[in-house]
């Protein structure tokens, strides 16, 4: 039985869009996420799931309510401080891989760690190799990022998200652009990260199979949480 340590929690999160008319996109969202949990956010398009993810990611700060990450209330903090939190504790995986095309895969993976700057260049390089190896990409390390296939690029971006060993990994449609084989690979990686490394994964998806296989699914509609499918505890006790 895993210890249910809360990694991220929200309290009555609300957000409005003002263009083209005032519109409540998140309504009273309160939930918690735990260490080692593989959480998926689902819902129809326009349900607010991506908006919620960007609020959780600290990149979007224009919301009401409260957001706690690793026991710290980050609501209302300065953007530079939030950038540090992201650098330390949050890894990002997007639908479009957003690798820097001029750099090699290895360098792309290294960038967040070099930014963090608490390891030497050689150590970071070593670590980046390890992450790429874990994702089966060691041979591609020195190729330019733009020369890889979509699935490979997505795995490089996962390696990049992992380089600083963040507690949280946030994904926006991580498999949206991938074929079923690569989707399976990415899914297995996430599963492994949450189970073996106790990292918390919060992924927005509209792939139902992907969501079903995760530890827990939160479904949103019109900015409200309408269901917590399959609770985390039960998945563990199975």
């Amino acid at each position: 039985m895993k210890n249910l340590e809360v990694v991220l929690s929200t309290k009555r999160l609300q957000k409005y869009f003002y263009e083209p008319i005032k519109f409540k996109v998140l309504d009273d969202v309160t939930f918690q996420s735990y260490r080692g949990e593989f959480l998926t956010l689902v819902g129809k398009s326009g349900s607010g799931k991506s908006t919620l993810l960007y609020c959780l990611s600290t990149m979007d700060t224009r919301y009401e309510g409260e957001l706690n990450i690793l026991g710290e209330n980050v609501t209302g903090k300065k953007t530079d401080y939030l950038a540090e939190i992201r650098n330390h504790h949050i890894g990002f995986v997007f639908q479009f891989h957003y690798l820097l095309p001029e750099f090699t895969c290895l360098k792309n993976v290294m960038i967040p760690a070099l930014k963090l700057g608490n390891r030497s260049y050689e150590e970071v390089e070593e670590k980046a190799y390890q992450k790429l190896e874990m994702l089966g990409l060691k041979e591609q390390a020195l190729k330019p990022a733009s020369k890889l296939s979509g699935g490979q690029q997505q795995r490089v971006s996962i390696a990049r998200a992992l380089i600083n060993d963040p507690q949280l990994i946030m994904c926006d449609e991580p498999t949206g652009n991938l074929d079923s084989k690569n989707t399976q690979i990415v899914f297995d990686i996430f599963k492994q990260l949450s189970q073996e490394y106790n990292q918390t994964i919060i992924a927005v998806t509209h792939d139902n199979d992907f969501a079903k296989a995760s530890d827990r699914t939160i479904e949103l509609a019109d900015g409200k949480i309408i269901s917590h499918h399959k609770l985390f505890e039960t998945s563990e006790s199975e």
Binding site: S57, A83, E84, H88, F94, K115
Partner: peptide
């Protein structure tokens, strides 16, 4: 602009 966005997501500050 995409590169800039991802750099900021990864924790690069405005000053960086």
């Amino acid at each position: 602009i995409n590169d800039i966005a991802i750099l900021k997501a990864m924790g690069f500050k405005g000053g960086d």
